[in-house]
Simulated assay, not measured.
Amino acid sequence: MPFGEQPAYLRVAGDLRRKIADGTLPPRTRLPSQARIRAEYGVSDTVALEARKVLMAEGLVEGRSGSGTYVRERPVPRRVIRTGYRPAGEVGPFRQEQADERVSGTWESHSDQEEAGPAIAERLRIKEGERVMRTRYLFRIDGEPSMLSTSWEPLAITGRTPVMLPEEGPLGGRGVVERMAAIDIVVDNVVEEVGARPGMAEEMLVLGGVPGHTVLVIERTYRAGGRPVETADVIVPADRHHAVYHLPVR
């Protein structure tokens, strides 16, 4: 195929994508049927099917059982604002994960102990198999699932202390910095790495998306004098969120 020439299914998908973008095919509109695409563009059934698959993979359309394929509502992305500043007396993991003060939300969590696998052991700089406290969070905005987070803390640090369970005890629900300070550990820096990958089926089932659609993964690690005291994965659908960083100049 000559350079710059697109396969037929991509040309069809591109034209349908343009119609979705300019409002010719507005949200909740049924996508033209396979027969209509075949007739309108002069392509085969295979090409029409592949073009539809492209739009579904991009999250522009969704299939409804027994009804057809429809243009999806395009959500207005929320800003996940990341900042090194945390006010004294910060309350709640939602503020820890989502620092936009204009956003209010709720969350549910569950903590249990487990042995650190190779990846988490490396991030926490502990030996594989050492015990950690894993806490899973589901965050909601206006009642709608918005964000998943899983954190791990070495029990060699928090075990048998008042802050062993992040959401229970006298400092339950407080941020990592405040909880660690209560056991005389001074957190002095945090490192975040942002990546993207296809969302796993179980994640998208909870977040209300389509398996395979892109999610942002913010890998965050709190450190005290270079020693990791907590690491977490924050997961948000990429089509619904922008990661915005506010970094102080020293």
Rank of each mutant, 00 (worst) to 15 (best):
E5F: 05
P7R: 07
P7C: 06
R11A: 00
G14F: 00
L16C: 09
R18A: 04
R18T: 03
R18E: 13
I20G: 00
A21M: 03
G23N: 07
P26A: 00
R30S: 11
P32F: 01
S33F: 02
R36D: 13
R36S: 12
I37L: 14
A39F: 12
G42P: 11
T46N: 06
A51F: 00
L55F: 13
L55P: 05
M56E: 14
A57F: 15
R64D: 02
G66R: 03
S67F: 12
G68C: 11
E73F: 08
R74M: 07
P77W: 09
T83H: 12
G84Q: 03
A88H: 00
G89R: 06
G89I: 12
G92A: 09
F94V: 10
R95E: 14
E97P: 01
A99S: 10
D100F: 08
G105H: 07
W107M: 15
A119M: 00
A119Q: 07
I120C: 06
E122L: 11
L124D: 10
I126D: 04
K127T: 11
G129C: 01
G129K: 10
G129F: 02
R131E: 07
V132K: 05
M133I: 13
R136G: 15
F139H: 11
I141V: 15
I141M: 14
E144T: 04
S146T: 11
L148P: 00
L148H: 02
S149D: 07
T150H: 05
S151L: 11
W152G: 15
E153K: 05
A156S: 09
I157D: 12
T161S: 15
P162C: 04
L165E: 13
P170Q: 00
L171G: 06
G173C: 13
A182N: 09
I183S: 00
I185Y: 12
N189W: 15
V190N: 02
E192L: 00
E192N: 13
V194F: 02
G195F: 12
E202H: 13
E202V: 02
G208L: 02
I218C: 10
Y222C: 05
A224S: 06
G225Q: 09
G226L: 12
G226P: 11
P228L: 08
E230M: 14
D233M: 07
A238F: 04
H242Q: 15
A243R: 08
Y245D: 00
H246W: 14
V249K: 10
